[in-house]
Design a protein around this nucleic acid. Sequence first.
DNA 1: TTAGGGTTAG
Length: 594
Amino acid sequence: MSEPSCSVAHRLLLRCATGAQVREAHASLMVTGELVSSPVAAAVFLHNTLIRAYARTGGAAHLEAILVYRHLLRSALPPDTHTFPFLLKASAAALPGSAIAAAQGGAAHAQIVRLGFSGQLHATNALIHFYSLAGDLPAARRLLETSATTDVVSFNTLITGYCRSGNSAAARKLFDEMPQRNGISWTAMISGHVHCGEEREALSLFSAMQSSGVPPMAATLVSVLSACAQLGALEQGRWVHRHLRVSGGGAATINVFLGTALIDMYAKCGEVDAAVAVFEAMPERNLLSWTTLIGGLAVHGRGTAALRLFEQMETSGVAPDDVAFVAALSACSHAGLLDDGRRIFAAMRRRYGVEPKLEHYGCLVDLLARGGRLTEAMAAVEEMPVSPDGRIWSALMAGCRFHGDAKLAERVAERLVALEPDNGGVYVLLANVYGAAGRHGEAVRVRGAMRRRCLGKAPGWSSVEVGGEVHQFTAGGGSHPAAAAARAKWAAVERRLREEEGYVPGREEVLVEVEEEEKDAAVGGHSEKIAMGFAMLRSGEGERMRIMKNLRVCGDCHRATKLVSKVFRREIVVRDRTRFHIFRDGRCSCGDYW
DNA sequence: TTAGGGTTAG
């Protein structure tokens, strides 16, 4: 007996990987007339399969899935229980910016009720999914609470919905209360914490998952690695890598997601060579894997290597997207590659049709401004099609400060203050510009204005990983139990730097109105130095010290860290807000350009 | 050989 033609078409459609392929298969079904002239069950089946195929491929194809559904209705064919999950999935995926998709979801809900499908588990779950993505979490919650049948998937879907909308607390409550959990429940909650910037919660939930005996899935480890990357938790990240190597299948278990997550983790933990090794061992790479490594090399200041990789990616037939261009441009900006940066920026639109966004302008302005091309940088800002935000002006401002252009800095500061009047950091920047230009009276005036408005700068902190544990310090040491010991250790270290290298704590970074005597103490209290003191107290002699901070390294800390690496023969890895500094033998990998 | 949930870069 020969196979029914709808089965052949079904298999064909599910093999389609792109919207264009689905469109072609769709067209051939229209030509043969199979879509409408088959027996009713087969015709509905084919419509469902088409909707599913469009839903899978993404982009504009999501909307075409909706068109197929409307074609089904126009052909007077009855949607069945299989139709709605596919339709809702496509509608949910098409949601951003599509009023049609939003309306279709609501209409499908009404139709489900009318046809008596509302008791069906799959319809319920698809609706929860749709409302979650539509941002209507109360509607999704109502479905979970009032539906006759729900299962673990219903809960998992709502947990994900809460997390995507930023409400991890509601998600966690649901997770804690749900009657049973599977691996996906744990994974959804762990990745949800990461999504909401709660990496520590994510890691502690992962250890709870392990205690509960549920084995981690690949997707779980991807999220765990992402948490490690954000936290700079190298030891835990390495543990995941080892775990992958020993548990079943060896390197083959490292899929493209895990490989990319490992690259990111190593790069963000200061081990860029390990990131390169993972990349080279990957059997399969995609745009994200390339981009991650390019960005990793960029933050390590390896601009030339990053650009070489970018070219290799192009030659291998992978077209860069907007994110890849951010990575390439930031590589130029961290390494001061002025001409390459200009060239790549121009090629974005011309060769690849990628419209430059704020981030791209940010890199360009940063590059030009720090390269001393302040006029060109200002011109770039003025010709931007989108209005510049605080980050763009800040990049320009940093350039002004670096090159001592107090006049332009004032103009830029006016724009910045207008944009972000409550951001104390802006005033600090301006005061520093005046300080660098020797106009101390003006600097004091700006500080005064800042105080009158009761504005503060975001408090700085530094953290250091010792023995797999992360310790955090604010300026002066903060509330860490070992703050006093760390401060004392730093004082001893600094004495040796003075004796052997003639180190004098720099003054340009200090609040100008602070008395002379207190200046050294204020600089000595920078969180980075306390963290370094703590690391020297607690870590082994030859060990690399790993410090992470939320602000940029200041000039004085940079100088002091270089000297520590020389005098104490220690390698020090510092991850600051924008890049890595690797200190060795009195030198820094940034070449003093940051 | 027809359904639903989780996963990486900036």
